[in-house]
Design a protein around this nucleic acid. Sequence first.
RNA 1: GGCGCCUUGGCGGAGCAGUUACGCAGCGGUCUGCAAAACCGUUUAGGUGGGUGCAACUCCCACAGGUGCCUCCA
Length: 470
Amino acid sequence: MIRVRLYNTRTHQVDNFKPLAGNEVRMYSCGPTVYNHAHIGNLSSYIYADILRRTLKSNGYQVNHVMNFTDVDDKTIRDSHQKYPNEDPMTALAEFTKHYEKVFLDEMVQVGNNIDDITFVKATDNIADIQKLVCELLNQGVAYVADDGVYFDISKYRQTRVYGQLSHIDFDATDHQRINNDEYDKEHVHDFAIWKQQKDGEPAWDFALPDGTKMPGRPGWHIECSVMSVKNLGQPFDIHTGGIDLIFPHHENEIAQSTAGDQPELYANFFVHNEHLLVDGQKMSKSAHNFYTLPDLTDRGYDPLDFRMLVLQSHYRSATNFSWASLDAAKNRRHHWMAVAELRHQVSDNPSEEQNNQAQDLIEQATGAMENDLDTPNALKYLDQAFDLFQPDRADLGALSHLVEGVDQILGMNLIGSTPDITPDDYKLIDQRQQARQNKDWATADKLRDQLADRGITINDGATPIWSRA
RNA sequence: GGCGCCUUGGCGGAGCAGUUACGCAGCGGUCUGCAAAACCGUUUAGGUGGGUGCAACUCCCACAGGUGCCUCCA
């Protein structure tokens, strides 16, 4: 049953997906560095990872999804010291990152990602295993000790393996001028730190090199992911996800670390990378100060799920420009879906085999679109059509419920959660307003309409009034 | 300098060599005490120049513009 097709950065084409072993899909996503709010570009990456997992699950696979927190690096150290200048560095780091882990998980939930289906792991919980791999790489001669740390030796690695498989980097043609090498004590420009020796005031873990030399310090960035993915998923595993910017050097380096020496040749079978969310046509980045966070959006009255809709409106492999106008479009589309979903609380059932079949058909087409390299724009099209089937006077409520559940399952739009029934009190106001209207007491009717609006409820007058939150 | 990607209507955004994408906005209408919503209908496309096809938005080439990675980065 091979139905899922995915663009694989390893092969540079859309491939049929099949788990390496049995029915289980082992998937690793590069998670956030927890030193601040994620920006909405970061979040979009995790939304795509979430719908990939949903698609695999709805296709009948069991998915073991692991995501890491990078909770020790230059920025977390710098900012934790700033926040807790009087704490010892290790305590400051732990306190500081704990806070932003919580912020991150909270925002993940807000944008509709199912964190219960993800196993989260932290770099600082895996120091011993990281040190073990550092030692193995040293013992096998593909790493070397320098004054400020341990480095991976790419030229050694290249004697037996290919470096740069994903990015198809022409190693020898790369312009070395661009890289200022003075700062580090590495032998070749592409070599990268796998262990960084402690500097003054930095948190550090004890570490003895294979020859017994003490080198307290902390792990390099790339090696965390190598260790945490393989430790939790085995090697090779099925899918590695991340933003397109991680292809080089992060993922190339992960591959190198995990396939060096006598390790297996294959690290991860599929690499799935998402394109960036842009602002004014340019990459959103913290250094360029052109990013938005989720609170920036909610402060303006948008629901985090409006943002999810915006993300889903474009394919994960095309760069999307973020703008308030397109967020409005996404919001309106979502509100339309909500208004239809809300019919299930307030109209009488009109069983219809035809409607049932049509809805089922469209749900299957949407699922099919998702299985075709996560074609969310087309999936949304089919779901739009499905919602258009239902009108107040002709709604098969079973079919409608099925659709609403399907949307939540496939896209994680949390339609059920965001469209509960209104309260008996609300209904009473609606009845009173109907009464007033029948008496042509427009002043009272309008006042009641305002009261309902204050509760976030809009009344659509027709033969029978239909309420909605849109 | 090296390796890539993109260019569709007012905005966002797909597929496809010949038949309506879709959403949002706009416009017209139905409904309505009014408003909104909902519903029905509808206008605006495919960077430029070549080429191959009976036929190109869709394939090929060139050019222009934009943009990403090559350094931490989703």
